[in-house]
Structure formats: C-alpha cells, structure tokens
C-alpha cells in the first residue's frame, strides 16, 4: 500500500469515528458559538461598532482556542493498543499526514462556523472576501498542521490541557502574527493580491515547513 492510499484509509477512518460520535463535533461547534456569544454580551451587546483591530484579534484568538481544544484529542481518543495496531499496519508518516488532513478539514469547518457567528453577532469588517478566504484557509491549515504535531507530543506526556496550551502558544505566535497582518489587508476593500503576495508566500512556506518538520519528526515520536 502506498502512502497516499494509507492516508486515504486513515482519513476515512477518522471521518467514520467522528460520525459515530457526533456529540464531539457538535460539542466543539457549540464551543465556538458560546465563545462568540460571551464576547458579544461582554462587549456591551454590540451597541458600539467594534474596532477592526479588536475584531481581528478576537476572531483569531477564538479560533486559536477552538483549534487547541478540537485538535488536542487527536491522539488520545483511541487507546494505546489500537494505536499500536495502526503502527503495525501503516507507516508513521501516513498516520501524521492523515491526522493533519483530517484536522485541516475540521479547522476549515470550524473557521466557517466562527466566521458566520462573528458576522451575524459582531458584524464583519472584511472588505476583500477573496483575500480573506484565502487567509482563513491557509490559517486553518497552519493551525491544524502545527497543533496535530503538538498534540502528538502532548499525548506522550499524558495529554493534559495545560501542557497542550503551553507547548503550542509560543510556537504558534509567528503564524498568528502573520494571519493578523494579512487579515488587516483583507479589511481594506481596495486591497489586491499584489499587496499581500509577500506575506502569503511567507504563510505558505510556514505551512509547508510545518508539514515537512512533522513528516520528519513524527516517526521518532511514534516509535515506542
């Protein structure tokens, strides 16, 4: 079985597991909605218009916390023995790639939910939807790639929520800063892709590097 096939089977397995425990997906979707609702009620019920910077920061911080919570369980929802069984069947690269692909899909879904709720409750300062959607997709990919690897590391150490957060926050900062900067461009309706091409390339390179790093490092981590 080649790598692509292995990844396909594993992603299908993830989807099946998710489908069987629908409450998990529902739970994380509710997490997004409740977070936004807390922000909305805390902000004096939206009577004043939110500054763009504040919207930007709140949006990405909400996504960050959602991502950490959604992805933390990647390597712990199945027991150790079953993971060992996958190891005998599949290459470790296939395992981490499948987690990344699956989490990327999950993150994009959650981003869409978050964006919809934000727009309904807090309005939206986005002026250039084309740029913003590209940024959101690349950001979701970056979150899922980085956090998949961190959750694999945290899972080895008993996977408590604190560890997941303290391991991921410092390393996710460069990603967050690039995303915040890119989103600010997307708020200006006259912005074009030429203005952001440099930053987009940086973001793409960062995503690619995260995949490469995980691809190289995960086999060492997986081996028990």
């Amino acid at each position: 079985m080649n790598l692509a096939q292995e990844v396909r089977y594993l992603v299908a397995k993830e989807l099946l597991l998710e489908w069987r425990q629908k409450y998990a997906l529902g739970g994380i979707a509710l997490y997004v909605v409740s977070t936004v609702f807390v922000i909305y009620t805390s902000l004096n019920q939206g009577s004043e218009e939110l500054a763009k910077t504040t919207w930007n920061v709140l949006f990405w911080i909400t996504l960050l916390f959602t991502a950490v919570n959604a992805i933390a369980k990647s390597f712990t929802q199945e027991n150790r023995e079953r993971n060992l069984y996958y190891y005998t069947l599949m290459s470790p690269q296939a395992v981490i790639l499948s987690k990344m692909v699956y989490n990327a899909g999950l993150m994009i879904l959650l981003t869409v939910i978050a964006l919809a709720v934000f727009t309904v409750m807090l309005g939206s300062p986005v002026g250039q939807w084309a740029i913003f959607s590209v940024v959101v997709v690349l950001g979701g990919l970056g979150f899922s790639f980085l956090l998949s690897m961190i959750s694999a590391i945290a899972a080895k150490a008993g996977n408590n929520a604190t560890l997941m957060a303290i391991l991921s926050f410092p390393v996710i900062l460069p990603l967050i800063l690039i995303l915040l900067k890119l989103s600010r461009f997307a708020f200006v309706s006259e912005a074009s892709f030429d203005d952001v091409s440099g930053l987009l390339v940086t973001l793409l390179a960062l995503d690619a590097m995260l995949v490469a790093l995980s691809f190289i490092l995960f086999p060492y981590l997986w081996r028990d």
Binding site: I150, I153, V171, L173, P174, L177, G198, L206, L213, L221
Partner: peptide, 23 residues
Amino acid sequence: KVAAVYGIFAFVIYIIFIFVLPR
C-alpha cells in the same frame, strides 16, 4: 525522545520567528 522532538520543532519555528517578525 519526546523532549528531543519538541526541542527540534520549537527551535526551527523560533528561528523562523526571529527572521519573519522583523518583516
């Protein structure tokens, strides 16, 4: 093993951070 993996992962991202941030 786990510390080595995180050490490598974090160092590479940290170096990128130092180079990317000034931009």
